[in-house]
């Protein structure tokens, strides 16, 4: 089963839920935890371990200047403005390129080849028995989060439970991370912003056809509006984590709630079974 953890609003506790869920499930089975918050991956902080790292690249065009007649067909074709043809040279803006390869196809002189351009890295580690951590990291300055996420997701084993931690928000990186998952856990908090962004995130996963449930984190007990929204939209509230100084302190020293206070493991197990029920599948 493949589970995504999303939120809309940042800082609600996605990584906290993903890390504790993975830690809990790894006692009884094989778990792959994938950090798809590639602009700010942080799960490795909970699971320090030696990692193997490799580059992630995308194909981009390279102009063979002596063959190019500066006809401008490639620039005309490119919908992203990545190529500009001047009378004497071609300008290429790699950060605008979407690697579609169309410029190569339309070039009448075969003056375009593809070269690899690094956009980020992929790290894998085994921090504990039963748990593999995969971390996608986007290079600073690169706008290409989606290919890094796609690559990180392909690294997951087939016979394991996969837990995907996503970026905050509801834009392309989140859609790419959540797409194809069997169920999604939406983490929210007891604030107007938490609820507002929960509504957006719930809308996204619903449009993607992915069943979802909600975890209310840092609850101050005044969750009436969130509960009302979940009831109206048929979203199961799978767990409520109280606003607690003790939990915050555990997190802040880089520990896990389910490691420091193992009695919480049954709650995270129960989230998993609720997700399994949502997805309508056997493990």
């Amino acid at each position: 089963m493949k589970l995504a953890v999303a939120s809309g609003k940042g800082g609600t506790g996605k990584s906290m839920v993903a890390a504790n869920l993975a830690f809990t499930l790894a006692w009884t089975g094989e778990v792959t935890l994938i950090d798809c918050d590639v602009e700010e991956p942080n799960l490795h902080l909970f699971f320090p371990a030696p990692a193997t790292t490799r580059d992630i690249t995308i194909p981009v065009p390279s102009i063979v200047e002596f063959a190019c007649k500066h006809c401008g067909k490639c620039a005309e074709f490119c919908q992203y403005g990545a190529l500009t043809v001047l009378p004497d040279r071609v300008l290429f803006f790699p950060e605008l390129c979407h690697s579609c390869g169309g410029c190569m196809l339309v070039c009448p002189k075969n003056a375009i080849t593809e070269v690899s351009r690094r956009i980020g890295t992929l790290s894998t580690s085994v921090p504990m028995k039963g748990l593999q951590l995969i971390t996608g990291t986007l290079d600073t300055g690169s706008p290409h989060a989606v290919p890094v996420i796609r690559e990180a997701k392909t690294m997951a084993g087939h016979n394991t439970t996969v837990i995907i931690d996503t970026a905050p928000g509801t834009s392309c990186p989140v859609v790419e991370a959540v797409d194809g998952c069997d169920a999604c856990i939406l983490v929210t908090e007891s604030t107007p912003f938490g609820l507002h962004d929960l509504q957006l995130a719930a809308d996204v996963v619903s449009r993607l056809g992915i069943p979802a449930g909600v975890v209310i984190n840092r609850s101050d007990g005044k969750d009436d509006q969130t509960i009302q929204f979940c009831t109206d939209h048929d979203l199961d509230i799978m767990m409520t984590i109280p606003f607690s100084r003790e939990i915050a302190a555990i997190q802040n020293r880089g520990d896990l709630l389910t490691r420091a206070r193992p009695e919480w493991q049954k709650d995270f197990c129960s989230i998993f079974f609720k997700c399994k029920a949502l997805a309508g599948r056997e493990r």
């Binding site: 401008g72 620039a75 919908q79 992203y80 403005g81 990545a82 500009t84 300008l91 605008l96």
Partner: peptide
């Protein structure tokens, strides 16, 4: 959607 600067320049 994007890349309008270089396209407008062209």
């Amino acid at each position: 959607a994007g890349g309008v600067g270089p396209k407008a320049a062209q």
